[in-house]
Design a protein around this nucleic acid. Structure first.
Lengths: 131, 131
DNA sequence: CTGGATCCACACCGATACTG
DNA sequence: CAGTATCGGTGTGGATCCAG
């Protein structure tokens, strides 16, 4: 718990600003602002899931994007990967403590799109009509 | 205020699910899960801003992406665009009531990346080391 | 079952030049 | 000031095949 106060101090001191393209938080934000990251973190909200479960829950995701996104999230310390060396092999993905702090935000974005999609569609229809 | 209860009912009934690629909320989520959307909505948290202000605050954004992203957000009913026909012309962008409900979520994501960037960098270093 | 590897079309996006 | 238009490199991402 030594890095969080430091980071918070840097943020308050304006030393870490996602508005600044040279700040490390910018590429991080770029990785997080991703459709699959939002859906995968949301899917893991209720506990660890197997690779095939994630592929089933998150519809339309290709094997490539599923594996690729999980790798990046694992690399960033958001999800943990546990391999059970059975035959066939079994792999479970779960949220790390760090990923657990991000999940609610992503879940909120997913829910927002579900709840407000009709309002957005209506706005789009109005915009088209006024064209 | 008639659409919101309907939408919420549809969500609770499972008729609107971002996990389903054929649900309209999926392409919406895809548009929202964007670096520039997060930064622009966050930038408008303190009130309307001019085009040039947004370009200055959100570093590294090209004219093309700035205009394009603002157009999509306007079309989706997230931001309002008000033109003052002076010379030279002045354009102000602000959050709509709908955009105002989304802004806190995006702002939270931006702040998360700023606060936790060091932890993520540390996780990445560990991942590289274990390779 | 859980990927890794490859190919390739396409969309994205930055740079640049130009305009009311 | 606030865009529009266009071009071209680059990366994304789906499909497919293969492997442990």
């Amino acid at each position: 718990m030594a890095t969080k106060p430091d980071a918070r101090r840097r943020v308050e001191a304006g030393q870490c600003d996602a508005y600044d393209p040279s700040c490390p938080s910018r590429p991080l934000l770029d990785r997080l602002a991703d459709k699959w990251v939002v859906l995968l973190l949301s899917a893991l909200a209720d506990g660890p899931l197997r690779y095939s479960d994630l592929a089933r829950i998150v519809g339309g995701v290709s094997q490539k994007m599923l594996t690729q996104t999980l790798r990046v999230m694992e690399r960033d310390g958001l999800v943990s990967r546990r391999v059970t060396p059975s035959v066939p092999v079994r792999v479970d993905y779960g949220l790390t403590p760090l990923g657990w702090t991000l999940m609610p935000l992503m879940y909120a974005v997913k829910e927002w799109s579900e709840v407000h999609v009709e309002e957005v569609e209506a706005a789009r229809a109005t915009y088209e009509a006024d064209l």
